[in-house]
């Protein structure tokens, strides 16, 4: 990574133009990037992707990022030597099995063979015997499922880099075992946390709790929050999940305002023909209150207020607090 944005050559500009056309086409589709790392939480994310990505206009991309060689950590012997040895034993490299398992969760093998066409793409990469690999399965309806094995300096960079290659509507990652506070993340932010911080699109952090009363959608009445709420409500409506709205007032004096926010949100959704099962208001610390409520729901929806990292560092962020502390899956809408 350089300090200056790089100037591009003519060839790069041509490739960029081609990519931009592809991106333009992709913008008309609902694209879900599911990051698979073999954990149960990441497969939970895949199940969620399957649920929301049933339509023909939805594409699901399964991504596994393999860190590039770390010569010092492996004592000066490149890890590629070990990986080449594994390949010569006829063993699959890490990630391949995870992606195959993911594909099996999305669709049956027989249906895949009969109704989907497959296209393999390989990109050579120095430092790794396998490079980047992609298998795109395309259905005659236009829907596609992509398995991508990517090499990057670290998993978070690889995931964020993948966004640059094709815009996504939502990125799904399994919840980490620990979610660091803003101060700790300065030292060491985990993969999910780093992606959640820097991703330009919505991010869903999945946890294994799936049972619950549908979607808990949080609002604070701002324009951004209402827009996020509408998009989350459409998602809930399409997947036939009941919707509960909640607004948290910091103290009793603000309770009236919170009640007004949820009733405005309810009215807005009613105009769209979306029914709200319940509308709640709570008083107290927003993160703690939402956390308490979240245990009864399959998914909590928050919206990023658009605070800069510095502001989040100093004043904290409700969306980030909820993503880290909730017991269920959390969707941060951007």
């Amino acid at each position: 990574m350089g300090i200056w944005h790089r100037r591009t050559t003519a060839a790069e500009r041509a490739a960029e133009k081609e990519l931009e056309e592809l991106r333009e086409w992709r913008r008309n589709r609902f694209r879900i990037l599911v990051c698979i790392d073999g954990t149960d939480a990441s497969y939970e994310g895949l199940r969620f992707a399957k649920e929301i990505g049933q339509g023909d206009e939805c594409d699901i991309i399964l991504l596994y990022v393999r860190p590039i060689d770390q010569g010092l950590r492996s004592g000066g012997l490149q890890i590629r030597v070990a990986r080449e040895n594994m390949l010569e034993w006829g063993l699959e490299l890490p990630g391949v099995q995870y992606l195959k398992k993911g594909l099996a969760l999305l669709t049956e093998e027989k249906a895949m063979a009969e109704q989907w066409s497959a296209k393999h793409t390989h990109t050579n990469l120095r430092g790794d015997p396998l490079g980047d690999n992609k298998v795109e399965y395309r259905h005659e309806s236009g829907k596609s499922i992509v398995l991508k094995l990517k090499t990057a300096p670290d998993a978070a960079s690889g995931i964020l880099d993948q966004y640059e290659l094709g815009p996504y509507n939502v990125m799904i990652l399994g919840a980490p075992s620990r979610w660091q506070g803003e101060l700790r993340s300065f030292w060491d932010a985990g993969v999910a946390q780093k992606v959640a911080m820097l991703s330009p699109c919505s991010v869903l952090i999945t946890r294994e709790q799936r049972d619950g009363k549908g979607f808990l959608i949080c609002t604070n009445g701002t324009e951004h929050s209402m827009d996020a709420l509408r998009r989350a409500a459409v998602l809930a409506h399409l997947t036939r999940n009941p919707i509960t709205l909640v607004s948290v007032a910091l103290d009793k004096a603000e309770r009236g305002m919170a009640e007004q926010q949820v009733s405005e949100a309810k009215a807005m959704l009613a105009e769209d023909g979306i029914k709200v099962a319940e509308a709640l208001t709570r008083v107290g610390d927003p993160v703690a209150e939402i956390k308490k409520l979240s245990k009864d729901y399959a998914l909590t929806v928050v919206s990023d207020s658009g605070k800069s990292r510095l502001k989040r560092f100093i004043r904290g962020s409700v969306a980030f607090g909820v993503m880290g502390q909730a017991r269920n899956s959390v969707l941060n809408v951007r």
């Binding site: 073999g38 492996s74 004592g75 890490p94 990630g95 995870y98």
Partner: peptide, 16 residues
């Protein structure tokens, strides 16, 4: 930790 010794880093790279 995974990064502590070369052997740990290499074995961890298998993904198990």
């Amino acid at each position: 930790t995974v990064v502590g010794t070369p052997a740990c880093t290499i074995v961890f790279a298998a993904g198990y």
